Amino acid sequence: MQPNREYILELVRKNDWSGGELGRRMGISRAEANRLLNGTRVGGKKIIAGLMKAFPDEPIERLFILPQVEPKGSSEVR
């Protein structure tokens, strides 16, 4: 699961937050928040938890790019 950077950038602009403000709301450093916004930091437990903390009302499907999972086994119906 990786952050949906474009959507997060949109939320940050909409709320008129700086990287420092995003970091404060996520519980991470300003530098780490700026790395997230610049695309050089893409994930980890701290980032996932921080984004959910900063944007509690946003659906997880919008905040993150979820991996596509193929079902195991045959697709035949018996």
Results as ranks from 00 to 15, higher is better:
G27A: 11
N4A: 04
L37C: 05
N15G: 00
R24D: 10
M1Q: 04
K53A: 14
A31S: 14
V12C: 06
R41I: 08
V42P: 00
G23K: 07
R62A: 09
S74N: 08
F55E: 00
Y7P: 02
G27N: 08
R13W: 03
E58W: 00
P67C: 01
P3E: 02
N15Q: 12
A49V: 11
Q2S: 06
D57H: 09
I28A: 01
P71F: 05
R5K: 15
K72H: 02
V42T: 15
Q68S: 12
I65D: 09
F55T: 02
G73D: 04
R30N: 15
R78Y: 10
E70K: 14
I60T: 15
L37R: 08
Y7W: 09
E70W: 01
A49T: 13
W17G: 03
E32W: 04
K72A: 10
R41K: 14
R30T: 15
K46H: 11
S29K: 06
I65S: 08
P56C: 12
K53S: 14
K46S: 13
E58M: 07
P56V: 10
E76H: 07
I28H: 05
K46F: 04
I65V: 15
L22K: 01
D57C: 00
G23W: 01
E32Y: 09
F64Y: 06
G23A: 00
R24A: 13
G50N: 01
G50I: 07
I8N: 04
S74Q: 01
S75P: 00
N38P: 00
G43L: 05
K45I: 09
Y7G: 01
P71G: 02
P59T: 11
F64L: 12
E58A: 14
L36M: 11
E58Q: 14
P56S: 11
I47H: 02
P67Q: 03
S18A: 06
P3N: 03
A49M: 13
L9R: 15
N15E: 12
M52P: 05
G20A: 10
E6N: 11
K53D: 06
P67H: 02
R35A: 12
K46G: 08
I60Y: 12
P71L: 07
R25I: 03
S18M: 05
G44L: 07
E10A: 13
R25W: 02
G43H: 06
D16L: 04
E21T: 14
R5F: 11
L36A: 00
L63M: 07
E76M: 06
I65P: 00
K72Q: 07
W17P: 00
R13F: 04
G50W: 00
P71W: 03
